[in-house]
Write a protein that binds this DNA or RNA. Structure first.
Length: 257
DNA sequence: ATGGCTCACCCGGTGAGA
């Protein structure tokens, strides 16, 4: 079973890109972030035509997350994190797909540092960590997948020195990610490729993709009963090279289930 | 090199992304 995550950066503006990638890669389950579309403007029919059922959590102009399943409709289990019911941003959706609890997330950016947005990012990670512990206690195969907006280590940044004071790389945020992982999750890409430099995002600016000036910020975390089934993972880098593409590339994992 | 892109908002300049 293949599970992928893709920050599409506008699902309607880049629908052709998304459909092209789905057609060539045919993942079983897909987590999408940054839909940038209100609930009523999700392209349900176009995805159905491509063979994917969907659940989604939209928002006007910003954020927005969705889970797709090939030849099925995911069973929605949650919209939003339990700690953040006053939060009006669409950053978490969860469903059962392929027998796995799939939590699809889009963490806050947190810039500028310091400031209220940065503090909110740390709070959001605490909420995610706490809820993740609840998921682990269920004892059902679970995965937290999406755009975490954090580079966990120096290896995940093309030029670590330049990112020291950025909200995606501040020590507080890296610690928040580490605290989350240490409650029992496995970072799939690092489990299989501990020493390889792997990027999932390249800025639009300054020819970043051609220079490979990238970051690893899209992650797949697996519960203890799922991690032993991990057989492969990768980044569909070539998608980032397409015309009018997202600034992220799709990331995928393969599970022997 | 903190943005030189790119998006959604709805038609022009603003806020946000990372």
């Amino acid at each position: 079973m293949r599970i992928a995550t893709y920050n599409v950066n506008g699902i309607n503006g880049r629908l052709d890109i998304l459909l092209r990638w789905l057609k060539e890669s045919r993942p079983d389950i897909v987590c999408l972030q940054e839909l940038k579309a209100p609930q009523a403007r999700f392209p349900k029919q176009a995805l159905e035509k491509a063979g994917y059922g969907a659940v989604w959590h939209g928002q006007k102009a910003w954020n927005g997350v969705a889970i797709l399943e090939r030849d099925a409709v995911p069973i929605l289990t949650r919209r939003g994190l339990p700690d953040r019911t006053t939060d009006d941003e669409s950053r978490y959706i969860e469903a059962i797909a392929g027998g796995v609890i799939v939590g699809c997330l889009y963490a806050p950016n947190g810039n500028p540092y310091p400031g209220p947005k940065f503090t909110r990012k740390l709070d959001w990670f605490k909420s995610l960590t706490r809820y993740g512990e609840t998921l682990l206690e269920f004892g059902m195969p679970a995965a937290l997948i999406g755009d975490f907006n954090v580079m966990p280590t120096d290896l995940d940044v093309y030029n670590p020195a330049r990112w020291q004071d950025d909200a995606l790389f501040r020590p507080e945020v890296r610690k928040a990610y580490r605290d989350l992982v240490e409650t029992g999750w496995t970072d799939a890409v690092r489990a299989l490729h501990p020493d390889e430099q792997i990027f999932t995002f390249w800025k639009y600016l300054r020819n970043a993709f051609a220079r490979n000036a990238g970051l690893r910020i899209d992650h797949c975390l697996l519960s203890p009963d799922l991690a032993p089934h991990l057989t492969a993972c990768g980044v569909d880098r070539h998608v980032r090279g397409w015309d009018k593409t997202s600034d992220h590339a799709p990331v995928w994992i393969e599970l022997s289930l």
